[in-house]
Design a protein around this nucleic acid. Structure first.
Lengths: 222, 222, 222, 222
DNA sequence: CATGAATGAGTCTTCATTCAT
DNA sequence: AATGAATGAAGACTCATTCAT
C-alpha cells in the first residue's frame, strides 16, 4: 500500500479540509477573524480543537487560504468573461458586470477579503495584496484605454478605478438571493451606474425594462 | 439631592477621558476592535489598565462612545450645511459634498463606524444603527424628491442612496492629507461622480479646472 | 477652637462610622466577607470608596469591629442576666435563655461572628477568639458546677457545653421575627431542649401551654 | 451518532478530575470558596490554571459537584442503614447515629455544604437545596411518626428535626480522628443527646460504659 | 486521523488601598 | 470629611498551539 505522506491526501481528508475552510469562512464572515476562535470552528465542524491541526497549519493559515481562493476564482472569472472580446467599452461592461455578479454571489468571501487583510501578518498580507493589485491593474488598464479613446469622458483613472471596485464591495454588502430583485437586474443596474461614472451611458441590452424603476427593489440591508 | 454617578468631573479627568477615547480610536482603526486589548490602550494612554475603568464602563463602552460621537458630528455637519437652502439639486450637491468631506477628514472614525458594528452586542448595536438610519433617511428623502422633480433621471432611490453613501466610505478608505490632491478637489470630483450617478451633470463651480486630470493624483492606498 | 484630632470625633462623623459598620454587617451577612467589596459597602452607605477610609482602617478592621462588638454585648447581657442569682440550675436556665434570645435577636451579627472567623488574619483572629473562649468558660463553669451537684446527669462537660452553644447558632439560623412563634416561646422551648440534654427536665414557667404543640410553628428556613 | 461532550474520558483524566475535586474541597474547607482562587487550586493540583478547564466547567461547577456528591453519599448511607428496620425508635436511633458518624467522618465536606450554599447562584443553589430538603424530610417523617406513637414526648416536629440535624454539623465542627474519644463513642453519646431531646432515653447498647465520663475527651476546636 | 489533556500567555474586569484636591 | 483618580496585583476564564495515545 502506498504510504500516505503527512498532509491531506485521502478523499475523506480533502473533504474534511474543505469543510473546515467553509465553516471557518462562515464564522469569519459573521463574527470576524479575531472574534472567531478555533473552538468555534471546531464545534461547527463537529471536531475537537486538536483535530483541526491535522488539516490546517494554524488559524492564520486558514484565513490566507480563504483569501487566496477568492482572488484566484475572481481572476479566473474575468479571464473567461473577457475572452475574445476586443472593444474597450464592451470589455469594460463585461468586466464590471462580472465584477458585480461575483461580488454579489460570493458576498461572504468578498467581505472577508476586504475586512480581514489587517489581521494578517506582514508577509502573508503581501502575498494576498499582490493578487488584489493584479486584479486592480486589469480594470485600471481598461479605463486608461477608454480615456485614450475618442469621445471618452474619464475624470481620473485611478480614482474611478477605485470607485468601480468599491461598487462591488458595496453590492456585496446588501445583496441577498432572497431579495426582491434578481441578480441579473442588480448586475445590470449597477453596471450601468458604474459606466455612467465613466461617462458611458449606453442603454443596456435586454434588462432595459426591468432596470428602470424608481422605487427600490433591492434587498434590505442586514 | 443631586445623585452623582461615579464618573469624571474634574477638568483633569475630562481631559484624560477624551485622551483615552482618542487613543482607543487610533488603535481600533489600526488593529481592529477585537485585536486591540485594554493593555494596548492603557499603554498608549500612559495609564495602568485598571485606571481606565475610572473613565470608561468597559471596552465595549469605549467603542459605542466613539461611534455615537461620529454620527452626532455627521448629522450636525449636514444640518448646518443644508441650512437655508431650498433647491433640491443644490441641497443634494451640498449634502454629498459634506458627506465626502466629512468622510475624508474623519476617515479613521468613519472606518471604525463601518467595520466594527458587528463587534457590538445587540442592544448597543441597535442604538448606533438607529443614528445611521436617521442619516440615511435624509439622503433618501433628497433623492426621492429629485426623482419626483422634472427632468430627473433617478434609476432606483434606495440603491442609489446606498451608492452615494458607499462613496463616502470609499473615499475615506484611501484619502490622505499628504496625498497629492487637495481635499477640496477630491470633494468636488467625487461629488460630481455621485451626481452623475443620479443623472445630474452640472459642471461644478470653481474647482472645475483642477478637477479634470486624467491621470490620478489621489493618495495611494495603504 | 479645639483642634479635632484625626479619627472620628464629631457627632456627624460617629454617625457615619456606625452607619458604615451597620451597612457592612448587612452585606457580610448576606454575601459573606470575601464576596463583599468595599465598593458594595460604599454604594450602600451612599459614599465613594475612598471616603470609607476616613472612617475605617481597612476592610478587615471593619470585620473585627463588628465581631468584637457582638461579644462585648453578649458578655454584658449574660452578666446582667445572672446578676444576683445563686442556684446553679437557675443560673443555667437564665444563661441558656439569654443565649438563645440574644442569638435570635442578633442573628445576623452572630452568623457573621461564627462564619467569618477564618477570614481574619492570625493576630486579629486571636483577639476575637479570646472573647469567645471567655464566654464559653462561663457556660462550661456552670455545667461543671451542675455535674458536681447532687442528682445531676451530665454526660460530658465540654461536649455538652458545645452542644448548648451550638443551639444558639442554630436558632439564629432560622429565627425570623415574622415567623409564627414568638421569641418568648422559642426561647422557652429551646431552653428546655437544652436543659433536657443536661438531664434537667423542669417544666418551664408560664410559657408552658404555648410550648407544647407537636406541629411546628417556627419560621421556615431561608 | 454518539454525541460526545468535551470532557473526561481516559482513566488518567478521570483520576485528574477526582484529584482536582479533592484538592478543591480541601481549600474550600480551609479558606472558604470565595477566598480560594483557581490559582490556589491549580497549584495544589500541580497543574496550570488553564488546564483545570479540561476537567471543570468553572469554579462554581467545582463547588456544586462537591456539594451534590456529599448529599448523594449521605442519602445512600441512610438508605442502607435503615434497610429492613421497622420500629420507629430503632429507625430514629439508626438514622441519628448514621447522621452523626457521617458528619464526623466527612466533616470537611459537610462544612462546605453548610457554609457555602450562599456562594452558589440561584439556579445551582436550588438544585442542591432540593437534595437537602429530601434528606430533612426523611428525619422529619421519623419524628412525626414518633410523635404519633404511644408514650412519646415530642415537643415540636420541625424544630426538633432542625435540632437533630444541627447536631451533626456541630459534631463535624470539632471532631478530629486524632481526638481522645473514638468515633464510636462520639456517635453513641451524641445519638443519646439527640434522642433525649426527643424524649427517648434508652441506655445505648454496648458503648454504655465508655460513654459516661463527666470530663470531656473530645478533640479541641480548631 | 481523532482525541483528551496540558501549557503559558493572554483576555477583560474588579480589588483594596492611597492620595492630591 | 468627601471625592475622583491612580495604582498594581489579582480575579476567573479563553486562547492558539502541542503532543501522547
Amino acid at each position: 500500500v502506498a504510504r500516505v505522506e503527512a498532509g491531506t491526501r485521502t478523499a475523506e481528508g480533502i473533504r474534511t479540509s474543505a469543510h473546515i475552510r467553509a465553516v471557518a469562512a462562515d464564522l469569519f464572515y459573521e463574527h470576524g477573524y479575531e472574534a472567531t476562535s478555533l473552538r468555534h470552528i471546531a464545534k461547527a465542524a463537529r471536531l475537537q480543537v486538536g483535530s483541526l491541526y491535522n488539516h490546517i497549519k494554524g488559524k492564520e493559515d486558514l484565513l490566507v487560504e480563504i483569501m487566496v481562493g477568492i482572488m484566484d476564482d475572481l481572476l479566473a472569472a474575468q479571464t473567461q468573461a473577457l475572452e475574445g472580446v476586443e472593444d474597450v467599452r464592451e470589455r469594460l461592461k463585461l468586466f464590471i458586470r462580472t465584477h458585480i455578479r461575483f461580488h454579489a454571489e460570493r458576498a461572504r468571501d468578498v467581505f472577508i477579503g476586504n475586512s480581514e487583510l489587517r489581521s494578517l501578518s506582514r508577509v502573508k498580507r503581501k502575498k494576498v495584496v499582490a493578487l488584489r493589485d493584479e486584479y486592480e491593474q486589469v480594470l485600471a488598464g481598461l479605463i486608461e484605454e477608454l480615456a485614450r479613446s475618442q469621445d471618452s469622458d474619464v475624470l481620473d483613472v485611478k480614482m474611478q478605478t477605485f470607485a468601480v471596485l468599491a461598487l462591488g464591495g458595496h453590492v456585496a454588502s446588501w445583496y441577498s438571493p432572497q431579495g426582491p430583485m434578481s441578480l441579473d437586474d442588480i448586475a445590470e443596474i449597477n453596471t450601468r451606474i458604474a459606466l455612467r461614472q465613466l461617462g458611458i451611458d449606453t442603454p443596456v441590452d435586454a434588462a432595459e425594462d426591468a432596470a428602470r424603476p424608481t422605487r427600490s427593489r433591492c434587498g434590505s440591508r442586514p
